[in-house]
Structures are given as structure tokens and as C-alpha cells.
Amino acid sequence: MSDHPKNSTKSAENISVKVTDLHKSFNHHEVLKGVSFEVKPGEVFVIMGPSGSGKSVLLRHIIGLETPDAGKISIQGQSIEDPAVLGQYRLAMVFQSAALLKSLTVGENVGLYLTEHESKPPAEIDRIVTQTLETVGLKGLADRSPSELSGGMQKRVAIARALVVEPQLVLFDEPTSELDPLMSVTIGEEIRKLNQRTHATTIVVTHDRDLAFGLANRMAMIADGQILFIGTPDEVKRNTDPQIQKFINAELNSKPKAKP
């Protein structure tokens, strides 16, 4: 078993994230070109931008799945270059594809963190899993295989898996992609509830304008690997940068109009 972050004295704090001058290239193609921003403890920070702008790569850096070519990422002022730093905090990420382990049942997926890190008896883990699945509206599905669920349900299982961790920092990668508008609203609600329940610092990467403006305390607009603007949703709406306006308006125009 790995070291359990709950034993750490730092585990009770809400955590801040600071990204400084982050650069990353893949096959000589520069994906991130000096990205810098700071996320305050407990806030919902949304990174919005068009596809291919480097949003997901940025998120993968924050949770240590990628190593930057240059620049620094700090959690609570400690650089995550030291792998032990990430291990000190309870982190969770909800992937675009949900990334549920297909060899496990829904319940086993949700309880995986507890099984691997905690010495709770199986009955207690089952109780927590059942309760968490109920929270995300998936009561009674613990014994199902992830492949039997729809895309939206899989994402809710992934959110349940994140909830179980009681995260201090939770990252969402395109949580509403490939979902119908109704399911997108539901997922947005789940993210909001998760933030209210855990007060975890939340970073959401999306190109869904409605989700972004509905969720964010602050947001960053990113394009072509560079941050264009950081501010509150109102500040972003008022911003006159043509690239930002073009993206927001294009998103608006692409939304299907409701029938009268």
C-alpha cells in the first residue's frame, strides 16, 4: 500500500496551486508556451479554450502525469518536482473518458482508493461506496460493469470515485464532452455539489461555455498554449480581446436554439 495522505498533517488544509511559466513541447511542437496562473484554496477555477489549445496537457501537468520542459508547478508553495509532494495531499482527477477500470465493477471502481489506502473493513467500504453512489444518483448499480453504463453515468461514477477520496484538489478534464445538454447540466450540478460538500480546490478544463460560466469563481481563457486572460466570469464576458470574444460568440452560435 502507498503512504496515505490522510495521515499527513497537511491533509486538512484547502490547498492552493501555482503554475509558473510552464512550457511543454511534443515532437518539436510547443503545446504550452509559458503558462502562469494561481488557483486559490477552495475556489472553482475554470480553464476555457478551444480544442487543441493545451488545456488537457496543462491539467495533466498539475497532477504530475506530465513533466514540464520548463517552468514550475507548486501546491501550497511546494514544487511538485519532488514526487513526495503530490503524495502529501488528497488529489483526484475526473478524466474526459471517465477512465474507469473495466476489469472492476462500478462499486470496486468507486471503492478502489479506500481498498488500496485504508485499513477499513470491507463492510465499511461497501457502506461508503453505496452511500457515494447514491449521492451521484447511481443507487443500486455497484455490481454493474462500467461497460454497461452510458457515457454520462460513467462520468458520474468517476465523480463518485473522486468524492470517496475526500479530495483537497480535484481536476476535471472536459467533464461534459460527448454528453447531451441535459446530462451536461447534471454533471455541472454534480461538480458544484462536490465543491460545496468538500470545499476542495477545483480546476475544470472545458470548452463548454455554459458549464464554464455557471461554475467558475474565476476563469482563464487559453488559446494556442498561452493564457489570454484571467478573471471572474463577468470580467471575461466584458473583455474586448477579439480572440476571447470570437470564442465565446462562436460557442454561443454553436448552441442549438430552443424550439418555441
Partner: peptide, 8 residues
């Protein structure tokens, strides 16, 4: 990646 993010 999901395992890694759960510190597994």
C-alpha cells in the same frame, strides 16, 4: 493515469 492520480 487514473491509478496514478489516486496515488496507486
Amino acid at each position: 493515469d487514473a491509478l496514478k492520480t489516486m496515488n496507486i
